[in-house]
Amino acid sequence: MSRGLILGVIAMAAVVVASNILVQFLFGNWLTWGAFTYPLAFLVTDLTNRVYGVKAARKVVLAGFAVGILCSFIGTQIIGEFGPLVTLRIAIASGTAFLIAQLVDVFIFNRLRDGAWWRAPLASTLIGSSLDTALFFTIAFAGSLTFIEPANDVSWAGEVLPLLGVGPLAPLWVSLGVADWFVKLSLAVIALIPFRYLAVTLSGKKANI
């Protein structure tokens, strides 16, 4: 395993572990602290793809997926105030969203890698992040998918409230998803700065930001 790939795996593992811990802590009414660390997974994937290639990026994604499964398993063994910190449904939603969204990100980045330097990371992250949010919140909380884990009561997430407290009426889980999506979109743009700097640095080229 090359040094670059090892660094990518370590960085991805750190993001996944940190996000699994920070998701337990609320930030305001609609977010958790994990919402601000998880999008860094796309930065790690895109940097690996740019500097070390698509095959290395896929390996980093699979490593992150494995770490995520381990974190979910550990979470199912820790009992909090309302039961296990991680339910089966949350674990399935998290793993499915991560793997599909990250692999789509890798695919799109690779297709756009020869264009302007910002196009591949921006497009792949925006599409991957949107897919990640849609998959996770739908699988984890949509009432139509209660068959995944019938014993897990997520009816609280279906409470109908104004969207983000000010918009049209929608299930609570939709507001949570929209807030998460806004954070991901914002960080996708902000992450272009460290992406550009780290990409040229790791490639051994002079930065031109």
Score class of each variant (00 low, 15 high):
residue 54 V to L: 11
residue 20 N to K: 03
residue 18 A to L: 05
residue 152 N to A: 10
residue 121 P to D: 03
residue 198 L to K: 11
residue 115 G to R: 15
residue 152 N to W: 07
residue 141 F to D: 07
residue 185 L to S: 11
residue 180 D to W: 07
residue 101 A to R: 08
residue 12 M to H: 02
residue 118 W to Q: 06
residue 93 A to M: 08
residue 54 V to P: 13
residue 209 I to P: 10
residue 158 G to C: 00
residue 84 P to W: 09
residue 94 S to V: 11
residue 73 F to P: 07
residue 120 A to Q: 01
residue 132 D to Y: 03
residue 76 T to N: 12
residue 51 V to E: 04
residue 207 A to V: 10
residue 155 S to T: 08
residue 1 M to C: 10
residue 162 P to T: 01
residue 67 V to D: 06
residue 174 V to S: 00
residue 101 A to N: 08
residue 163 L to W: 00
residue 187 L to A: 10
residue 147 F to R: 02
residue 18 A to K: 03
residue 68 G to Q: 14
residue 33 W to K: 09
residue 199 A to H: 13
residue 59 K to W: 13
residue 73 F to A: 14
residue 27 F to W: 12
residue 100 I to R: 01
residue 129 S to H: 00
residue 29 N to F: 09
residue 171 P to K: 12
residue 135 L to Q: 01
residue 8 G to D: 05
residue 139 I to A: 05
residue 117 W to R: 14
residue 187 L to N: 05
residue 181 W to S: 02
residue 124 S to A: 00
residue 91 A to I: 09
residue 77 Q to M: 11
residue 84 P to A: 10
residue 23 V to E: 14
residue 47 L to N: 11
residue 66 A to N: 07
residue 90 I to L: 14
residue 29 N to K: 14
residue 127 I to M: 09
residue 107 F to V: 08
residue 178 V to Q: 04
residue 154 V to P: 06
residue 76 T to G: 12
residue 76 T to V: 08
residue 114 D to E: 15
residue 194 P to H: 11
residue 19 S to P: 07
residue 180 D to T: 13
residue 200 V to D: 10
residue 7 L to A: 15
residue 186 S to F: 12
residue 146 T to Y: 01
residue 174 V to K: 00
residue 146 T to F: 04
residue 138 T to K: 02
residue 8 G to W: 08
residue 39 P to F: 05
residue 5 L to Q: 12
residue 134 A to H: 02
residue 202 L to I: 08
residue 98 F to K: 13
residue 111 R to D: 09
residue 18 A to S: 09
residue 113 R to Y: 14
residue 161 L to P: 06
residue 202 L to E: 02
residue 183 V to K: 04
residue 138 T to C: 06
residue 114 D to Y: 15
residue 98 F to P: 07
residue 101 A to I: 11
residue 138 T to E: 08
residue 112 L to D: 13
residue 68 G to A: 09
residue 103 L to G: 14
residue 80 G to T: 08
residue 202 L to V: 06
residue 57 A to R: 00
residue 125 T to N: 04
residue 40 L to T: 13
residue 144 S to W: 15
residue 88 L to D: 12
residue 1 M to K: 11
residue 133 T to W: 02
residue 54 V to Y: 10
residue 45 T to E: 07
residue 39 P to K: 01
residue 50 R to F: 07
residue 72 S to Q: 11
residue 91 A to F: 10
residue 191 A to G: 06
residue 76 T to R: 10
residue 64 G to H: 03
residue 94 S to W: 14
residue 148 I to C: 05
residue 194 P to G: 10
residue 95 G to V: 14
residue 84 P to Q: 08
residue 188 A to Q: 04
residue 45 T to L: 12
